[in-house]
Design a protein around this nucleic acid. Sequence first.
DNA 1: TGTAATATGCAGACGAGTTTGCATTATTGT
DNA 2: ACAATAATGCAAACTCGTCTGCATATTACA
Lengths: 405, 405
Amino acid sequence: MSQDRKAAARLGDSSLLRRLNIAAALDAFIKAPSLTLRELRDVIGVSRPTAEDLLAELLEEGRVEETAPPRQANGRGAGRPARYFRFRAESGYVAGIDIGAHKTLAVVTDLRGNPLASHRRELDPGLDAPERLRAAVETAQECWRAAGLGAGEITGAACGVTGMLRAPEGLFDVAAGQAGSGLRPYSLPGFTEVDVAGTLSDGLGLPVAVANDVKLAALAEQWKGAARDHRDIVYMFAGHRAGAGVLLDGQVHEGRHGAAGEIGVLPMLGWESAVARLHARGAELAAGGAAPAGREGELVIASAARQDPESLAVLIEFAEVLARGAAALALAVDPEIVVLGGGMSRGGAIIAEPFRRELAKFTMFPIEVVTSTMGADSVALGAARMALDTVVGSLLEVPGIDPRS
Amino acid sequence: MSQDRKAAARLGDSSLLRRLNIAAALDAFIKAPSLTLRELRDVIGVSRPTAEDLLAELLEEGRVEETAPPRQANGRGAGRPARYFRFRAESGYVAGIDIGAHKTLAVVTDLRGNPLASHRRELDPGLDAPERLRAAVETAQECWRAAGLGAGEITGAACGVTGMLRAPEGLFDVAAGQAGSGLRPYSLPGFTEVDVAGTLSDGLGLPVAVANDVKLAALAEQWKGAARDHRDIVYMFAGHRAGAGVLLDGQVHEGRHGAAGEIGVLPMLGWESAVARLHARGAELAAGGAAPAGREGELVIASAARQDPESLAVLIEFAEVLARGAAALALAVDPEIVVLGGGMSRGGAIIAEPFRRELAKFTMFPIEVVTSTMGADSVALGAARMALDTVVGSLLEVPGIDPRS
DNA sequence: TGTAATATGCAGACGAGTTTGCATTATTGT
DNA sequence: ACAATAATGCAAACTCGTCTGCATATTACA
């Protein structure tokens, strides 16, 4: 008797069926631009009255609304035209934030990932962690204010951060990393000592996931960029810093310490000297003219485009070194595609060609190499995508069903 | 009307609930050694009559049977003692096969993974593919005959194969790989030209999954060996050949071409010369005494254990080279643990110590290194595990529920 | 031997989804 | 204008699986 009452998280409750069907219906609406009642019935495989019921519930919750029929459906046969319904992508919003050394940037998207607004603020590279995080919080808030949204309407957020978030306690000491060329484990000033996720969550009043910026740029590339329709991706970031990120099965692979992809620390690849040479060359060129912070790479590319032999040599070495890192990653995870991203990938063939050539030398299989099609907001968009995964995932989650059991 | 009949794979059918509950009940039985009706009710969270019903169905299907109460439950309180039931691990069997250059080996386990029998046959390294596959088929059949089983009782099988299964069509030509030291993409004679999985499936009369042997050894290590309770693993195989495998989230990561982990082809790591030196030293030592095929490594280890300086130097170089490969993999995927396996890992500290030292130099975080606790049947056991994943997965699968949607 | 405690069996109620059937509404084509 | 066509709204009857509650069976312990 009394023992019968205890059962807590019951699986067999038949409301489970309802929740499954609601989740399936919502999923169908999210995937399709618009659906009629009958299309919904066909997609999720329930009877029409049930589909009607599910639709009514979704309308009630505000997840779905009636919409005008799409163009191509107008003259299609006789009979009463069906009503069309669509997912209300504006029933929730997420923020994606990018914290770098020289700037912070935020975007706000709806639940379908359409960007509504973005906001950028330049930062002093020496800014300490509390100030930098405060600036990021304010930027995000300004961003959604610009989109006409209040804080309560933002249902999720994620943030990409340059460098490592956890200080390695191993053989390399952090100071060396900070003072070095950016190839050894690098962190923004003070970021290994503060709770980045907690500070952002407190500042914004909502849970914020934090990840490495390069990995989020890779995610953006898989979402809206050059690597669409690929699940396993190696992403090489060539910008002021050089870095890499790995996507496995369409998800950011963080690894035990969030350090997956940090191949640059392998000394035999020669990253350190190549990046140092690049920076040195950039500084030389900058001394003559304007010196925008963190833009050495662009200067060298511009100079190389003017056939400056020294700059060309520096860039080729840089590309080859990057390619050797990409080769190591490609041999490790055997990805479907390698994406070359970051500001310097916009140098076109100057970087891409030697990269491709060198990569082909070391991989066993010919591997597709594409250059990024995203802009400077790729990290923030990747963060938005990560936040969306969480938010939409929780919408579709059916309590009591463990996908991994 | 007529349009209403079409719906095919219906989700909302309330029998779905039944299937979910049956799967949950079976899962509970698989995970626990034995359960009473009430324990089952508690685990899956349904009412007792429902649990009763589910149990009746599982008994009917032969998946579960009544069993004697376990020891510790005897004097436990008053009241009518509960009947105990247990999963019938013997309601299905799987075969795990290992095809190497010098031998083929098969194991048969029940659905819980308890090995029932194993069978090994030595092979001529020059054997061509059809002969080698026939030998593997016969070995597997002899193995389950030894266990007293007929072919119809085997519900799944998988096979680990030394070397690459698909010939790279890229820059390296296959012949060079075969003639070389085993570091360039290697294949068993003829194995890139035949349909290995198809031939084995036809020969055994059941579907056979095929994977790289090192990756399956890694899986075995995660299942029953030194890496239990870890999800992301880098496994380094040090034996006649050197190789590596990566496990992500507890699963073999194959990669686009099944080549994930083939880090040894990176020339800057120096694998080729180190392995060549090892083989040369082994041959020198063998010339004096007996020369067992593919056992050079053991000779060198034995010699090093007798403090032979040349053998020691060769082994240290080998270990360091292996460690550099492990470092590249560890930086790529940032695993929880690195496992050193293969015959030479049984050399103890002679290999493990320099390996550990060298690996620590290149990884940012201190990383746990363990040596294998599995024997020579690790590949076959890993194959059995892979087959079990499929077989048990299909038992627990609920049609209409996609874990990944 | 009797009583408490626990396990098991069984019947009726309930919830959710389904089917069937019919009426209604909005279009297209004649 | 009218018929044909298709979408929609709605209600009654049915199925399936689960839940609640009660009766019964089996054991330990006083």
